[in-house]
Design a protein around this nucleic acid. Structure first.
Length: 641
DNA sequence: ATCGGGGCCTAG
DNA sequence: TAAGCTAGGCCCCGAT
């Protein structure tokens, strides 16, 4: 399940506890490894605790698998691609494409050559990203997308290993119909001579995706919908990796003529689309305004038709998509997908907009590339940018957004921000770094402290930036959050303002406020500064997951955790030791529980919510459920409390 | 202070 | 050994 999670979901942390909190809303029974032997050698009570821990650790992955329908999805993938089930986790995308190629080749009596893979550093040219006209747009912007651009190019032009012609082939075959692609005049025979294997595979994948999407439309259960959405996405990725496979020089069967022709066609198509739209939707042709393409990436164009209302923009978008589709070979299709209104275009691959598919109600706030969707920022940055964008784009309350940003800066400088909001995570992806890096240097330091618990290659390293000598580099100031808490090391709040918060804030405010945006970073709210010592809030002491004593079932008083004071001596010293360890681990939970899981209200000293509408009630419910779960587990194994 | 490159992560 | 692709923003380090 760890592999599944890492493959299928982009998360900040992949620990069992964190993943379960995210998808299931429940957590592990934590037992530190150092006391397992003692628990086993202890008494009935301690062994019971150990048993619950083991059962819970076993049932959680099972619950994840069920809830995310992993087995069904993976089985389906295995069937579509024809690879053994375990390949889906043990191996990559290539084997899936190869497997499908073998199938189709066998049907046609073809043999696939066993090439020696060479690998090369040269890249071929990729897609076009249209130079954005950056700014804030308070008019509807229509988005037109080619659906499955690369697969549809390969199908439309019959691009395949089995259709590629070289000069010898053309001489030998004489009178033959072929096309010449925009890459290096590569030539491919037309479909009536021979239909390529790749186009056939792609058609299969796309029709399977069509079916998944149709099922998705019919489904009403939100969770099953999410799963079907995941399936159609998987099929889309599989279809797109066919193109990737042909361009993989380290792969089994690279063919740059195919991959480079695909991207070359793509570049021509996005350019042609821009031209067609801009040339047709003009005042000269009887439209109200001259349309203008303000941005586009690979397979999409963002069009400003100049109209100020959603209904007309959507009508024009649909019409334009059909108009352009007619200029291309089947099955290439340009689709009108959505309108952004308003739209904040910050840079290439960086934008935010309110997303509309029907003119009555917006669907969502869509953000691409900016801090809200990146995992290498701290939560503070993510949350403040997200909140400001919502205020600006949904509420259209720019001054409210300014106020919020100023308040956050003020809170940060006064050390009122929870440390869990300041944790930055980055993947440790290489063992040798040419320049020193904060996360790598920290991993080294942690390794020297305790090699067992330090992050290793591939792990995500969590760190905060702490106060240090003036002018010290970031890699000298990165520190393990747990170490910071244990040693009461002050946080460098100024670093968070200067290096984390200020630029992202300026980037979203400047297009609207202009130079005035800089006032966000200088003013009274930046004056009050307090010495920063780390605080922990919003914690979930995992031991406090029960409302009644785990031993005698009497209600727990506020100061008790897990067991009442009468039962506590039964667990004795072991229990204390575990609590100590738990307290040190609290920061892990702090990352998860900074908001009430029910009403999203801020949490402070405890998991309990501060909102009046959502008091202890939720925790009681959850605690009761946890006890019920544990009891059920025990009953299944003929235990009883 | 500026700039190029390494590193990370994302868009598509 | 086995490994889908390219484009590109942005942060940080380190050389100039």
């Amino acid at each position: 399940m760890l592999q599944v999670m890492q493959r299928d979901h982009k998360l900040r942390s992949y620990t069992l506890n964190s993943v379960c909190a995210h998808f299931l809303g429940e957590q592990k029974e934590e037992v530190h490894h150092s006391i397992i032997t003692d628990l086993q050698n202890g008494n009935d009570e301690s062994r019971r605790r150990l048993a619950i821990y083991c059962l819970k650790d076993a049932i959680l992955p099972q619950k994840l698998m069920d809830k995310l329908m992993c087995l069904i999805n993976y089985l389906e993938m295995a069937r579509v691609t024809g690879v053994p089930f375990n390949y889906l986790l043990a191996r990559g995308q290539q084997i899936k494409v190869i497997s499908q190629l073998y199938r189709k080749a066998f049907e046609q009596g073809l043999v696939i050559p066993a090439l020696k893979s060479e690998g090369s550093d040269d890249q071929f040219e990729g897609a076009t990203v249209i130079e954005p006209e950056r700014g804030f747009y308070n008019v509807p912007i229509a988005t037109l997308d080619f659906s499955s651009l690369y697969p549809s190019i390969m199908i439309a032009h019959n691009l395949c290993y089995t259709t590629l012609l070289d000069n010898k082939g053309i001489e030998k075959l004489g009178d033959i119909d072929y096309i010449t692609t925009p890459y290096n005049n590569a030539k491919f025979v037309k479909v009536h001579h021979r239909k390529g294997l790749l186009p056939t595979i792609l058609e299969d994948l796309l029709s399977a995706r069509k079916k998944a999407k149709a099922d998705l439309k019919k489904e009403t259960d939100p969770f099953k919908k999410a799963v079907l959405d995941g399936r159609q996405l998987a099929l889309k990725i599989s279809a797109n990796s066919v193109y990737g496979f042909t361009g993989a020089t380290v792969g089994k069967l690279p063919c740059i003529e195919i991959s480079a022709s695909v991207t070359a066609y793509g570049r021509q198509m996005i350019e042609k689309t821009k031209q067609e739209v801009e040339n047709h939707y003009t005042i000269a042709n009887g439209y109200q305004h001259d349309a203008h393409v303000i941005y586009g990436d690979t397979d999409s164009v963002m069009v400003k038709f100049g109209v100020d209302n959603l209904v007309d923009t959507m009508a024009l978008g649909r019409e334009a998509a059909d108009y352009v589709t007619k200029k291309f070979v089947k099955p290439i299709k340009l689709e009108f997908e959505k309108v952004y209104f308003p739209y904040l275009l910050i840079n290439k691959k960086r934008y935010a907009g309110l997303y509309w598919t029907n003119p009555d109600k917006w669907d969502k706030l869509d953000t691409k590339g900016i801090e809200t969707v990146r995992r290498d920022n701290c939560l503070l940055v993510q949350n403040v940018i997200e909140t400001c964008l919502r205020k600006m784009l949904i509420d259209r309350d720019v001054s409210g957004a300014e106020e919020y940003a100023k308040k956050t800066i003020s809170d940060l400088l006064q050390n009122k921000i929870d440390m869990s909001q300041l944790v930055i995570t980055k993947a440790l992806s290489k063992s040798d770094y040419s320049a020193k890096q904060p996360h790598h240097e920290l991993a080294e330091r942690m390794r020297k402290r305790d090699a067992g618990s330090a992050p290793t290659l591939g792990d995500r390293v969590a760190y905060v930036i702490v106060k240090s000598a003036k002018g010290a580099a970031a890699y000298e100031k990165s520190e393990d959050p747990i170490y910071v808490l244990e040693n009461n090391i002050p946080i460098d709040t100024n670093y968070y303002l200067e290096n984390q918060l200020s630029k992202p804030l300026l980037r979203i405010f400047e297009p609207i406020l202009g130079d005035k945006a800089h006032s966000l970073l200088a003013g009274d709210h930046t004056r009050v500064v307090q010495i920063a010592t780390p605080t922990i809030g919003g914690l979930m002491k995992f031991a406090v997951k029960t409302a009644t004593c785990l031993g005698c079932k009497t209600p727990l008083s506020k100061n008790d955790t897990a067991v009442c004071r009468h039962c506590k001596p039964k667990l004795g010293e072991l229990y204390q030791r575990q609590l100590d360890i738990v307290n040190k681990l609290e920061v892990h939970f702090a990352r998860l529980w900074t908001q009430c899981q029910r009403c999203q209200g801020s949490l402070h000293q405890d998991i309990l919510c501060s909102s009046r509408d959502c008091p202890i009630w939720y925790m009681r419910k959850k605690a009761q459920k946890d006890v019920q779960d544990a009891t059920n587990l025990l009953e299944r194994f003929n235990y009883a409390w």
